[in-house]
């Protein structure tokens, strides 16, 4: 940090030609930055565009060599076929049901656990919190397969009970998010309630929860998209009739020869990502809060 010490003398050396030069340099800089940003933006958006283009092509256009960028006529029929070739509404219903179920349960349980770690005192709280933090680092896939084996023996496979249990068990990641938020709320609020003879149950429900609406939304939206986008758990735990849209889209679109039906699958995938993108675009700040809040203030 020696640079900060020498910097005090620097402003005096700024002469007019110098600043003109710098302004010009800044303008070419901005142009260069925009060029770079545009190129990168094309790379990041490209896959979405190519997906939608594939979804409106005929099969012949899709396999044509050299690749054709635009179809002759837009094949909107691919979307109807995506909806009817498999039982799309049923899988959509399963996905929505599981996502809502898990998101509501895990948001409430994580809020309660986060409140406990933020505002209450108890023996062994510190080691418990360290344990919670270390489970954030535990790859979920390690426990998922043995959980599957156990649940299969307990008859919980091919039911939605695993999602209920996962939801009730709270997510360490969201607990941490809530804990950070609750810990920042001034103590006077809670002290006043305690003096009035208010129990912690009511303090949590009537004071803290109403204050934490933004974090509740963040937790709900994050957990909703986790389940909506999950592949491995429904693939393992659910039979093909009760599975989610993600599993159905990944594997159920077949042409009569049993090969993947690329254009119809693309249409289905487009339908499948639209809700996520819509939620994301309207609620981006909640996602940013979720990603940043968990990562930085450790």
């Amino acid at each position: 940090m020696t640079i900060t010490q020498t910097s005090a003398a620097a402003p005096a050396t700024g002469t007019p030609p110098h600043t003109a030069h710098r302004r010009r340099r800044r303008r070419t800089d901005a142009a260069g930055a925009y060029l770079l940003l545009m190129t990168l933006a094309v790379l990041f958006v490209g896959p979405f565009v190519w997906l939608v283009l594939a979804a409106v092509k005929t099969k012949a256009e899709w396999v044509a060599i050299p690749a054709e960028v635009l179809p002759d006529t837009f094949q909107w029929g691919n979307f109807t076929r995506a909806l009817t070739e498999i039982n799309f509404p049923a899988y959509l219903g399963n996905s929505l049901f599981l996502s809502f179920l898990y998101a509501i349960l895990v948001t409430m349980s994580s809020a309660a656990v986060g409140f406990g770690f933020a505002r209450l005192r108890g023996h062994g709280k510190r080691p418990l919190f360290l344990l919670l933090l270390s489970t954030m680092m535990l790859p979920q896939i390690l426990t998922l397969i043995p959980t599957y084996v156990l649940f299969a023996r307990a008859g919980l496979v091919d039911t939605y009970w695993p999602w209920v249990l996962w939801g009730l068990a709270a997510s360490p990641y969201l607990v941490f998010l809530f804990r950070q938020f609750f810990a920042a709320i001034p103590a006077e609020l809670e002290d006043a309630a305690v003096i009035d003879g208010c129990g912690y149950g009511r303090i949590f429900l009537q004071i803290f929860l109403p204050l934490s609406r933004p974090v509740l939304w963040t937790a709900f939206l994050l957990s909703f998209t986790w389940i909506w986008g999950d592949y491995i758990a429904p693939a393992l735990f659910l039979d093909p009739d009760h599975t989610t849209l993600s599993v159905a889209i990944a594997g159920f679109y077949r042409d009569p020869h049993g090969n993947p039906d690329a254009t119809v699958q693309a249409a289905a995938a487009a339908l499948y990502v639209v809700p996520v993108l819509a939620i994301f675009l309207f609620a981006q700040r909640y996602f940013i809060r979720g990603v940043v809040g968990s990562g930085l203030k450790g």
């Binding site: 349980s109 309660a112 005192r121 344990l131 489970t135 426990t143 084996v149 996962w166 068990a169 129990g199």
Partner: peptide, 22 residues
């Protein structure tokens, strides 16, 4: 202390059954 454990029990039970047990 009792309230603390009441509040964090979902995670403690969940961790025991769904992480430690497997």
């Amino acid at each position: 202390s009792r309230t603390f454990y009441l509040f964090v029990s979902p995670w403690i039970i969940g961790f025991t059954l769904l992480t430690a047990l497997p």
